[in-house]
Design a protein around this nucleic acid. Structure first.
Length: 596
DNA sequence: TACTCGAGTGTTTTT
DNA sequence: CACTCGAGTA
C-alpha cells in the first residue's frame, strides 16, 4: 500500500510531498500532478510522519474535488471508501472539505455561537428582488444588484465601494433581511468563520487543533478566503497552498492570482516548489500556450513525445464551423484513423471513444450551434450545465419543509411555500404533535402528503434516504449540493464545455470553437484573464488540438464580421498549421486527408 | 394556477 | 436572434 504513495513520482513532486516544518507553496502547471502531490503529501504525513489525521485539513473549492481527494487518500491509507465527510467520522480520517463546508462545521463547533440557516443562491436572489420591489426599483435590476452584493461580500469587511445609492440601499435591505430571519448566504459562511477567527483565543485554539492545512486551487481564492486562510494558519505553521497563477480565470468573482504572490510575502519563510513537467500536454501545445500569456514561473516541459501541431481552421459562418466539427468528430470515433492509413501503420483499431473528445467555447450560447450539429448526426454529447439540485419545484418544497422541521428560518420558508403560510404552519404543528418522538424524515414524509409531491417517485425516495442518513441538523442546501456532485455520471459522450468549466479536466482531443476577436478575448473583458482562459483551453488537450473560428457571427441579433483571434497571432507559426475549408481543401486532397 | 405577450437583455460559475 | 421576466388575463 504505502509504496504507492511514492511510486513513479518525480523529484520536485517528492520534495513537495516531503517538505516539513513551514509554509509551502506548490506552483503546479497543467498536468504536472497537482492532485497527485496533494494526496501523496497527506498520505505521507499520516503514514510516514505519524501525524494524526485529525490535525489535517484539506480545503478545496468544489465538493467533487474534495471527494476525489478523500477517495485517493483513503485508498492509500487503506481506509475504505471514505465517502462520508460530513458530520461525525467513524474512522479517523483527515478532513477534506470545501471552504464553505468547512466554515459551516467550524461555526457549528464553536460553543455559545448562534448559528443561522444557510440559504442558496436562488433564495438570495429572491430576497434581492424583494428589496427592489420594496424600494420601487424595477426588478430587472435585481440580478445586477445581487452580483454586486456577492462581490461586496467576497471582501472582509464587505464593501459596496463604488456602488450607487440604490445598490447600497438594496444591500442594506438584504443584510437586514438575513439578520431578521437568521439566515446566512454562502458568502456569510466565509465571513462569519473569519470573524470568529479574528478572536485571538479562537485562532489559537483552531491552530492547535488543525496545524496542518492544505489549500488546493489557491489562485481561485477570493479576498475573504485569502484572509480566512491567513487567520487559520500562523505564519510559521506548516500550511500548504497549491495552485497555478496562469490558470486564474475567476476574476469576475473577485479571485486573483495576486493572492498566490501575496502568500509568499505574508508567510515569509515559504518554500516554493515549481512542478515543471507536464504529463498531459505535448510540448507544442505547452509552447503555444506559453506564447499567449508569457507565463509566470518556470517553463513547462512535456513528458509526452507527441509531435502533432495545433490545427487551425477558419469558416464562413458558425453553421459551417459546427458542421465541420461534427463531421470531424464522427470520423474520429467512427473508424480507423486516416493517419494510420496514410503512413502505413494502420492497426485497424484506432477508434476514439466519444468521451475522449471535448468541444470548448467562450460562452454557453456558442455551444448551441455545435450541439445542434452533433444532434443532427446522432452523435451523443453531454453539456456541462448541471441542473441546480434544488431547482425543481418539488425539491424546493421538500427542502423548505425540512428546514421548518429543523426550526431553521421558519418564517422565511413558510412564506415561500406554495399556498397559505398559516395553513402550513398549523399543519406542521399538528403533525409534529401527533407524531411526537418520530424522527425528522418520518415527519417529513407525512407532511409531503399535503404537498402533492409523489412520495413514491424514485428521486424523492432517494432524497429521503439521504436525509435519513445525513447528520441530524445538517442543512439540506449542502447535502443536496454534495449529492448532485457525486451523482455526476460519466457517460459515453462528447463533452461540450465552456472554457471555464473545462478547467481541471483533460481530453485527448480538444476543439476550441469560436476563436475570434470579440469572443476570445471576449469584448470588454480583462485581456490578461482572457489570455489565461485561452491558456487553460489549450492545456486541456493531451494529443490533438483544433482551433476554429468563423468570419461572421450572429450575436445579439446582429451579424458581425469577425477576425481570427489575436491570441492565435501570438502563437509561433511552427506550432500550428492552418487548414482551408472545403473549396480549397477539395483540390488538395492529400492535404485534407492528412488532417485525420 | 397556468397561460400569453411584449419589453428588455445579452460572459464566464461555485458554494 | 433567442431567451427570461413580469404584468396581465382566463
Amino acid at each position: 500500500m504505502a509504496q504507492d504513495i511514492y511510486s513513479s513520482i518525480n523529484p520536485a513532486q517528492l520534495e513537495a510531498v516531503r517538505h516539513e516544518g513551514g509554509p509551502l507553496m506548490v506552483v503546479a502547471g497543467p498536468g504536472t500532478g497537482k492532485t497527485r502531490v496533494l494526496t501523496s503529501r497527506i498520505a505521507h504525513m499520516i503514514k510516514a510522519r505519524r501525524i494524526c489525521p485529525e490535525q489535517i485539513l484539506a480545503i478545496t473549492f468544489t465538493n467533487q474535488a474534495a471527494s476525489e481527494i478523500l477517495k485517493r487518500v483513503s485508498k492509500w491509507l487503506g481506509l475504505g471508501s471514505g465517502q462520508d465527510t460530513i458530520g461525525q467520522h467513524h474512522r479517523v480520517i483527515p478532513t477534506v472539505a470545501t471552504f464553505h463546508g468547512w466554515a459551516l462545521s467550524y461555526l457549528k463547533s464553536l460553543p455559545g455561537i448562534q448559528t443561522r440557516a444557510p440559504i442558496d443562491q436562488r433564495d438570495a436572489k429572491d430576497i434581492v428582488r424583494e428589496a427592489c420591489r420594496h424600494y420601487g426599483i424595477p426588478t430587472r435590476k435585481a440580478k445586477g444588484y445581487y452580483q454586486a452584493i456577492s462581490r461586496a461580500k467576497q471582501q472582509f469587511p464587505p464593501s459596496m465601494e463604488g456602488e450607487g445609492e440604490e445598490a447600497r440601499a438594496v444591500f442594506a435591505y438584504y443584510q437586514d433581511y438575513l439578520a431578521r430571519f437568521r439566515l446566512w448566504d454562502f458568502d456569510d459562511l466565509i465571513l462569519e468563520a473569519l470573524r470568529m477567527l479574528h478572536d485571538g483565543e479562537n485562532a489559537r485554539e483552531f491552530r492547535m487543533k488543525s496545524p496542518f492545512i492544505l489549500v488546493d486551487e489557491f489562485q481561485d481564492v477570493s479576498p475573504a478566503q485569502y484572509q480566512l486562510t491567513r487567520s487559520m494558519a500562523g505564519t510559521n505553521s506548516e500550511i500548504t497552498v497549491i495552485g497555478d497563477p496562469n490558470q486564474a480565470i475567476y476574476g469576475f468573482r473577485m479571485a486573483s492570482p495576486r493572492f498566490l504572490k501575496d502568500f509568499a510575502i505574508d508567510f515569509p519563510d515559504t518554500r516554493r516548489i515549481y512542478l515543471s513537467t507536464s504529463y498531459r500536454c505535448p510540448q507544442v501545445f505547452l509552447d503555444a500556450a506559453s506564447a499567449v500569456l508569457e507565463p509566470e514561473g518556470e517553463h513547462l516541459n512535456a513528458s509526452s513525445g507527441i509531435k502533432t501541431k495545433i490545427q487551425i481552421m477558419g469558416f464562413k459562418d458558425p453553421a459551417r464551423e459546427a458542421r465541420w466539427i461534427a463531421s470531424t468528430i464522427e470520423k474520429l470515433v467512427g473508424g480507423m484513423s486516416f493517419d494510420s492509413i496514410n503512413d502505413g501503420t494502420a492497426q485497424g483499431t484506432d477508434f476514439r471513444s466519444l468521451s475522449d473528445l471535448a468541444v470548448l467555447f467562450r460562452a454557453r450560447r456558442l455551444g448551441k450551434e455545435i450541439a445542434k450539429a452533433l444532434g443532427r448526426r446522432g452523435i451523443p454529447f453531454q453539456e456541462a450545465s448541471r441542473p441546480d439540485p434544488l431547482s425543481g419545484k418539488d425539491l424546493r418544497m421538500l427542502w423548505r419543509i425540512y428546514e421548518i422541521l429543523g426550526n431553521r428560518a421558519v418564517e422565511h420558508h413558510l412564506a415561500r411555500l406554495p399556498g397559505d403560510p398559516a395553513t402550513w404552519k398549523a399543519r406542521i404543528e399538528k403533525i409534529s404533535r401527533e407524531h411526537k418522538g418520530a424522527n425528522r424524515s418520518e415527519l417529513l414524509e407525512r407532511l409531503l402528503d399535503f404537498s402533492g409531491i409523489d412520495i413514491k417517485d424514485p428521486a424523492i425516495q432517494g432524497i429521503l434516504g439521504k436525509i435519513a442518513k445525513a447528520p441530524e441538523d445538517w442543512p439540506l442546501t449542502l447535502v443536496f449540493q454534495r449529492e448532485a456532485d457525486l451523482l455526476m455520471t460519466r457517460i459515453e459522450a462528447v463533452s461540450l464545455l465552456s472554457l471555464h468549466a473545462s478547467k481541471g479536466l483533460e481530453f485527448p482531443i480538444v476543439f476550441i470553437a469560436g476563436c475570434e476577436d470579440g469572443i476570445i478575448p471576449w469584448h470588454g473583458s480583462d485581456l490578461e484573464e482572457e489570455r489565461r482562459l485561452f491558456y487553460v483551453g489549450i492545456t486541456r488537450a493531451s494529443e490533438r488540438l483544433f482551433m476554429t473560428y468563423a468570419n461572421k457571427r450572429m450575436l445579439f441579433g446582429k451579424t458581425v464580421r469577425a477576425q481570427r483571434s489575436r491570441f492565435i497571432d501570438g502563437i509561433p507559426a511552427d506550432k500550428f498549421e492552418t487548414i482551408k475549408h472545403r473549396a480549397r481543401a477539395r483540390r488538395k486532397k492529400s492535404r485534407q486527408r492528412s488532417l485525420f
